[in-house]
Write a protein that binds this DNA or RNA. Structure first.
Lengths: 124, 124
DNA sequence: TATTTAAGACTACACCTGTAATCTATTTTT
DNA sequence: AAAAATAGATTACAGGTGTAGTCTTAAATA
């Protein structure tokens, strides 16, 4: 699958919020969090197109971008990759590391329980 | 904290297996999985030293390397970073993504339950 | 002792990344 | 209509990364 850099991912993430969208809309969305120059974001959009992560249609002089990949697919692939590299493919050690260093809130625990619950229901 | 590239991490990981160790021991350990040239690994060792991830002592003409950072610390930091970037800092959506795409085994579930259990005991 | 080997230091080099600036053509605005 | 703003295309450029090759020196071997 496609490999994205951090900055590229953040631009794509701004598009995933709501699409299709023009470059200026994406720039607008990113302006809250990032101090990126407009030119920087356009460069990143170009690279995303080149990598096949986005497609676009022309609307006069402007391009209207649409993601070519789904966020869930991309994050799942990255998660698998991450867990493979750092935890030999097992997910519990990651969660356990969080638990040991007090990174887990009661809410996290509740959410995790629900995930487990749903998984078990699904097994039947 | 220190930023390591993928290749650098793999070299450090080979040292974490057992240390202190010489370059040739590390090269030996990596030879099973990777097709890296000896020179490549030495370059990476040098970069790891430069980044402060390793220290070494001289033993005659050889260096004896020791990790300067703990694996658990490094992976925890990377995990936090990862979960922040992809899941706004929440861990459950990652696990949930795995569940939805059938990436979880019964063993994973059992391990997760244990982590939760331990966490809850620890809260009292 | 002359030669080969092996350790680390230094150099190389293309591609990726972050971060724009400049160029060109078209709209807007005055 | 002339000038200014704006869209995307092209160019830039330093630092990181993967992947070694060469240089220097000392140790091992013939």
């Amino acid at each position: 699958m496609i490999e994205l850099s951090k900055a590229e991912f953040e631009v794509l993430d701004a598009l995933w919020i709501n699409y299709p969208a023009t470059a200026s809309q994406i720039i607008e969305r990113l302006s809250d969090d990032k101090q990126w120059h407009e030119k920087t974001i356009k460069t990143l959009l170009g690279r995303l197109v080149k990598k096949g992560a986005l497609s676009f249609e022309k609307d006069g002089r402007q391009y209207i971008y649409t993601p070519f990949i789904a966020r869930a697919d991309y994050t799942l692939k990255e998660s698998k990759n991450f867990i493979e590299r750092f935890f030999s493919g097992r997910i519990a050690p990651l969660v356990s590391g969080f638990a040991k260093s007090e990174q887990l809130s009661q809410q996290d625990i509740n959410e995790l329980k629900k995930v487990i619950d749903d998984w078990e229901k699904n097994q039947k």
